[in-house]
Write a protein that binds this DNA or RNA. Structure first.
Length: 571
RNA sequence: GACUCGAUAGCUCAGCUGGUAGAGCAUAACACUUUUAAUGUUAGGGUCCUGGGUUCGAGCCCCAGUCGAGUCACCA
């Protein structure tokens, strides 16, 4: 491994610490009595509470000035300044702890624990006068140093998205605000969970590995189970399992589920993503609309200091319930001026041409309508809006509309021009469901690789009887993007999927050690012979002389090689 | 999948018709007892993403590739 200058220096510092009897990676825990945020917030009103404090965290910056030095410590609540005074740290003659250990052997990134008292510097900054400090963990790699000046300008920000996503741990340490996004994500999920639990609905877990990837139209990931010797799919949805639970007698079930879809990746798509799905018995989609808008209003209030208005880019979005409701056909009428009620496929195709919406031969009636909606209407719904009553062919798991057999009882919730939630009055007629699956099978035979499989066990469950049920799914990643004002899904996933990093293909010391070369020799051997192959292409005598010559020339403090040793590298 | 842009020191970035690489921060050394992006002086640090090509000479020009970002398409 090729170490940079700074990495070598830190390894040397590590050794010096040990030489001085300081353990850089102690085994025991460290007792923390206070946190940075608490001290900064409350010291001035109750200074008496902070005469003796103990904190632990990471060193973020260091400013030494002779016999005193300032260090910024970051714990999980924030940053606070530490004041190290030489004679305070080292009251006796021996000043090593200050001059060596503190001044030279602590680095940005190290974890330390400090004890001391809180005071205010002449510059007016609340700080900790350190009396004792210990190493908790030495950092061997330099962190990027991001500085903020008095006006709040950020200098030398760590901005390269590739590095930020691949090394999220670094991003979290040095970039303020990143952690807040993820804390908010957690609060969004907690708020939703609390809302459901208040209704006594039950949080459940259903299989991620599924023999039939059902519940949505998407290409799945496939894997193989060795003992059963069958293919298994990573779920693309959990809908069919949650409905089985409704069949089994649950009144309401929900799951925060990771789903997996083997499709393209971009700003709004990650191969694995989180969806919350909820199913409630004896309800329909009308009820579900009211349930959903109240839930979202509550979630937004919970994460937004009680406010229902969220700033997203240059738009203000108000989550105050009730949301606007409009049927898909009315939406199209509103934004295109055309009433498509009762139009057949030919008429729709002509309309698409008139409107400049691209079509192709394989598109059926439903797909054409969807295309018009997606092209002409979707982007207009900035404020939360329920789009209702979708064409039947688009929704094979959704119940036929009570007053129009060509439509289904479905809604999607559009916010900021994008779909955030999707819900149905669930289809519970097993005969109808079987027919819909069979239509999907025909699509599949035509080559649609996203058409749904027939799940016979699910049909069997429906045949035992499922109560009228409404279900709703909401994309947690996309909701989080909205509420944190992020335009990329990668900003709301800790570890977004990335292409694997290229591994250095160069030779590894281990390859040479495997030949029997002594460890002390390996780095030198590698300097002369970059690969095992190049070394072994030569004669042992030649290598033997060359290496011993190298040893002499560079005055290496290691024993000369014997020819027999060198010869053994070829065996 | 198509197009556009990017990859140079640990980090952020500069670089010239094509003539062996620069700055700030970080690092090391010295000075300095309350600093605020601390400061001052000095020093070290680079396979200029990879591989080919053109050229006397390539970080720069050409070709191919890798990775990333953006736009579009596809997908929900």
């Amino acid at each position: 491994m090729q170490l940079s200058e700074q990495e070598i220096q830190r390894r040397e510092a590590l050794q010096k610490l040990r030489d001085l009897g300081v353990e850089p990676y102690p085994a025991e825990g460290y007792e923390v009595t206070h946190y940075a945020e608490d001290i900064l917030k409350n010291f001035e009103t109750k200074p008496g509470d902070y005469e003796q404090v103990s904190l632990a965290g990471r060193i973020m910056s260091k400013r030494i000035m002779g016999k005193a030095g300032f260090t910024d410590l970051k714990d999980h609540t924030g940053r606070i300044q530490l004041y190290f005074n030489r004679d305070e740290i080292c009251p006796d003659e021996d000043k090593t702890l200050y001059n060596e250990v503190y001044k030279k052997l602590t680095d940005i990134g190290d974890f330390i624990g400090v004890e001391g008292s809180v005071f205010v510097t002449r510059m007016g900054e609340i700080s900790i006068a350190v009396k004792r400090f210990v190493f908790l963990s030495k950092s061997l790699r330099p962190l990027p140093v991001v500085k903020t000046d008095a006006d709040g300008n950020i200098h030398d920000a760590f901005t390269d998205p590739e590095q930020r996503y691949r090394q999220r741990y670094v991003d979290l340490v040095v970039n303020s605000g990143v952690k807040e996004t993820f804390l908010k994500r957690s609060r969004i999920i907690n708020s939703m969970r609390n809302y459901f639990n208040a209704f006594q609905y039950v949080e459940v877990e259903t299989p991620i590995l599924q023999p039939i990837p059902g519940g949505a139209a998407a290409r799945p990931f496939i894997t193989h189970h060795n003992a059963l010797d069958i293919p298994l799919y990573l779920r693309i949805a959990n809908e069919l399992y949650l409905k089985r639970l409704i069949v089994g007698g649950f009144d309401g079930v929900y799951e925060f589920a990771k789903d997996f879809r083997n499709e393209g990746m971009d700003r709004t798509h990650n191969p694995e993503f989180t969806v919350m799905e909820i199913y409630v018995a004896y309800k329909d989609y009308i009820w579900m609309m009211a349930f959903t808008e109240k839930m979202l209003e509550q979630v937004v209030k919970d994460v937004n200091n009680g406010d229902t208005v969220v700033q997203v880019g240059d738009k203000s979005i108000d989550f105050k319930a009730p949301f606007k409701r409009i049927s898909m056909l009315d939406a199209i009428k509103e934004h295109t001026g055309h009433d498509i009620t009762g139009m057949d496929e030919v008429e729709l195709r002509n309309l698409c041409r008139t409107l400049g919406v691209e079509t192709d031969e394989t598109m059926g009636k439903a797909k054409l309508i969807d295309e018009i909606f997606g092209e002409k209407c979707e982007k207009n719904y900035i404020q939360p809006t329920f789009i209702t009553d979708y064409p039947k062919e688009m929704s094979p798991l959704c119940k036929r509309h009570r007053s129009n057999p060509d439509l289904t009882e479905r809604f999607e919730l559009m916010i900021n021009g994008k779909e955030v939630a999707n819900a149905y009055t669930e289809l519970n007629d097993p005969i109808d469901q079987r027919e819909r699956f069979e239509e999907q099978l025909k699509l599949s035979e035509k080559g649609d690789d996203e058409a749904m499989f027939i799940d016979h066990d699910f049909l069997r469950a429906l045949e035992y009887g499922m109560p009228p049920t409404s279900g709703m799914g909401i994309g947690i990643d996309r909701l989080t993007m909205l509420l944190t004002n992020k335009s990329s899904i990668q900003e709301v996933l800790f570890f977004p999927q990335m292409r694997p990093e290229k591994v250095a293909t160069g030779p590894k010391p281990a390859d040479f050690i495997a030949l029997g070369i002594a460890e002390e020799w390996v780095t030198h051997v590698m300097k002369i012979y970059p690969s095992v192959e190049e070394l072994q292409a030569l004669k042992p005598t030649q290598v033997h002389q060359k290496l011993n010559g190298y040893r002499k020339k560079n005055k290496l403090e290691i024993a000369a090689l014997q020819l027999a040793d060198v010869e053994s590298w070829w065996s």
